[in-house]
Design a protein around this nucleic acid. Sequence first.
DNA 1: CCGGACGCCTGTCGGC
DNA 2: TGCCGACAGGCGTCCG
Length: 271
Amino acid sequence: MPELPEVETTLRGIAPHVVNAQLTQIRIREPRLRWPIPATLAEKLTGETVTGMTRRAKYLLFHTRAGTMLLHLGMSGSLSITPADALAEKHDHVDFVLDGVSCLRFTDPRRFGSLHWCDQNPLEHALLKDLGPEPFASDFSADYLYAVSRGRRISIKQHLMNAHVVVGVGNIYASESLFRAGIHPARPAGRIAIARMTRLVDEVRQVLTEAIAQGGTTLRDFSVGDGRPGYFQQDLRVYGRKDQPCHRCGNPVRAMRQGQRATYYCPTCQH
DNA sequence: CCGGACGCCTGTCGGC
DNA sequence: TGCCGACAGGCGTCCG
């Protein structure tokens, strides 16, 4: 489900409720996620106070004195704040009771999400240590993207979605940024000139910035935690718009599949 | 090393 | 109405 804007929106919605709260109880109803929840997670976290919350790629990091919990929302995961005694519904897999009164609740129908524990520096965790740059960091530059694309025959869309290249860009925002940059999604990454990479880096940042400002994209049931949906779906230019007119040229938007994922593009405006 | 396919899950939707 | 396949915002792993 969530790409960087949705994870960032979740962070901003959840952090005010969680930071400085003590985790007085952890309830794990279903440990079988993408990876099993570590058996020691509850004992490590119980009694700890969350000192801060950050994001790296699509992971949320919950910092405590004892260590850091990593949380990934997968395709269908979401977080919400509820009363501590709220009845759990189907797919409400984990509760973190906050100061005994409220509750951070992890819900995930497809169970592609995951929870991890790090005693040491979380950035050294196996899942984080080899990730590419954050899209808003200065090391995600046109020169960098150009350099890591040389000799690569993979399509630029799949290249952009590779977290070893740049993190946070998933299926929606890859299509959207390539449309904005006027680059055909099937173009080999190694056959894009530096000037077009400059444009692409700009458009990736622009579309992510706009999406964050809108609270992310709500296609099905994504919400921030307080139940509010995101509104960026109103601003999508190609994603999900198969056969509808391109906003720039009026010709129908096309859909195709790349690496088992849907891609949307305008064959007139993108080359 | 690279690129492509697979599998992990459940829910929903469209076509017959 | 019911069934069945396709598809869904991710990503690690395996294979050639």
